[in-house]
Amino acid sequence: MTVYLAPQSVKYKRMSLDIRVKPRKERKDMNRKKITPYLYLSPIIIVFCILLVYPIYQVISFSVKDNVIVNPTPHFVGLANFSKIISSGEFWKSLKNSLEFSVVSLIFHMILGIAFALMLNSSLLNSRFRGIVRALYIVPWTFTVSIVAILWRLMLNNSGIINTILGLSIDWFGNRALAAKTVIFVNIWCSYPFYMISILAALQGISPVYYEAASIDGANSIQRFFKITIPHLRPVMISLMLLDFIWSMQQLSLTYITTGGGPIGSSETIGTYTYNLAFKNYQFSMASASAVIMMLLCLVIAIFYVRRQSRLD
């Protein structure tokens, strides 16, 4: 050991000697080394300033003025837009819908994600078969939102295939009691693969040693699932749930194309509510206030997510 260590320590001493001999060059190098990372980061920093920092500043400033964009000389109105939004029943209804959408989607994403991932991870299947099935399971996730929406509008039409199979004739997206639930169902279908794949990757990261040890100790499969699998999956699952919640709260495209928020606002989400304020009614200030509220809601959850991620690093 000492034999191998010796030359290294000698080299180290020589290097530190070099610094003392040539201080000026070294200092110049150090300065350059300090600036270099910022040079490499400058493009992304510029992009973020233009596309994030400034627009966020602007949307906040829109939210405290009377009608911007449409009105050339807007006035400062304080929090009037916010109080108007908070006192509107529509806002609370769409917030409630969004929460329902997020929570129900999240639960089913996790259930389907774990169930499919566990089955796909089973060592009883041959790996070729497993690969093909895994690929097929991801297919719904590869479609763009308008394809998903139109496909399900076809299938859930009054005389569509789903009604034919069920022997019913329901207009799923046009029914006040069912519209919001139907959109949630479609959302679960088109986004579960993301959670399934992430959970599957986490499952594959669990060392088989744990299971072998547990088997030797006589643990049955249910005990192994709750004592080994679940604890190992927990960090990934919490991250996934936070992400899912953030994304679902922002969801608007699927609702917009399938139901347009209707009928009579029954499937309105906070996303479609904000969108309609801005791009249908041209009330950009009100829309900005609503968009700021949405952003704050998402950022609160995101802070938990960031703190988790930096701890995991």
Partner: peptide, 8 residues
């Protein structure tokens, strides 16, 4: 990644 697209 958490900033809603509609806000921007």
């Amino acid at each position: 990644q958490a900033v809603p697209p509609i806000t921007l």
